[in-house]
Amino acid sequence: MRDREQLPVELVDTDGNATGDCSVAEAHRPPGRRHRAFSVWLTDPTGRLLLQQRAAGKTRFAGRWSNTCCGHPAPGEPVIAAATRRLADELGVAPTMITPVTESGIYRYRAVDASNAYVEDEWDHVVVGRLLSGVPRPDPAEVARIDWVLPTQLRRAVDAAPEEYTPWLLGVLDVASTPD
């Protein structure tokens, strides 16, 4: 298995234009370097959101609840292809189990993980889709647990205990929930 921290990410400027690349690890070391990422939200037919609790071994924001999955496309890789691949790798969700995923918009954010000082400075493509069949089979190295929640339940839970959730979670939900 490859060390995901050594994979390349695409650096971007304040307008999302590619400016170069570096490793995942380098992009997240202080002071952080803005780079392209994606965050996926899957829903079920009743409108519930698929959450994941990040595994304890994750480098950044370990053990926190977050959106369905996140990742970084390789430099020049189409975001939808990277998101589809990551759903299969991280959650065992094959393309045949979901509607084709689509991009909903961009969420720009910067967050520091207080437990280790790693920095998220991301130009985050928000990707959405719907689980049509099957059951996610998370990779335990990536995901501790999954849960399905309604958006209103999620917002209340984050308000009550924000330290249990990733700092980008509600921003990604807002972009995913914005009608075209």
Rank of each mutant, 00 (worst) to 15 (best):
A62G: 13
A62D: 11
A62S: 15
G63L: 10
R64V: 07
W65P: 11
W65T: 12
S66F: 11
S66V: 02
N67I: 02
N67C: 15
C69V: 14
P73K: 12
P75Q: 09
P75L: 04
P78K: 08
V79E: 05
V79N: 05
V79K: 03
I80Q: 07
A81P: 01
A82P: 10
A82F: 11
A82S: 15
A82M: 11
A82D: 09
A83K: 09
A83Q: 12
A83G: 12
A83C: 09
T84P: 06
T84I: 08
T84F: 08
T84R: 15
R86Y: 02
L87M: 15
L87E: 07
A88Y: 08
A88E: 15
E90T: 13
E90F: 08
L91C: 04
G92I: 11
V93G: 05
V93Q: 04
T96R: 13
T96K: 06
I98K: 03
I98H: 06
T99F: 02
T99A: 13
P100T: 06
P100M: 08
V101Y: 02
T102A: 12
S104L: 01
S104D: 04
G105C: 01
R108F: 00
R110E: 07
A111G: 04
V112Y: 02
D113T: 05
D113W: 09
D113N: 07
A114S: 11
A114R: 11
A114I: 05
A114W: 00
A114V: 11
A114Q: 09
N116C: 13
A117Q: 14
A117K: 07
Y118G: 00
W123L: 00
W123R: 02
W123Y: 14
D124P: 00
H125F: 05
V126W: 01
V126F: 02
V127A: 00
V128M: 02
G129W: 04
G129Q: 07
G129N: 07
R130M: 15
L131K: 13
L131Q: 06
L132M: 14
L132K: 05
G134E: 09
G134C: 11
P136L: 08
R137L: 12
P138Q: 07
D139W: 03
D139C: 03
D139E: 13
P140L: 05
P140S: 09
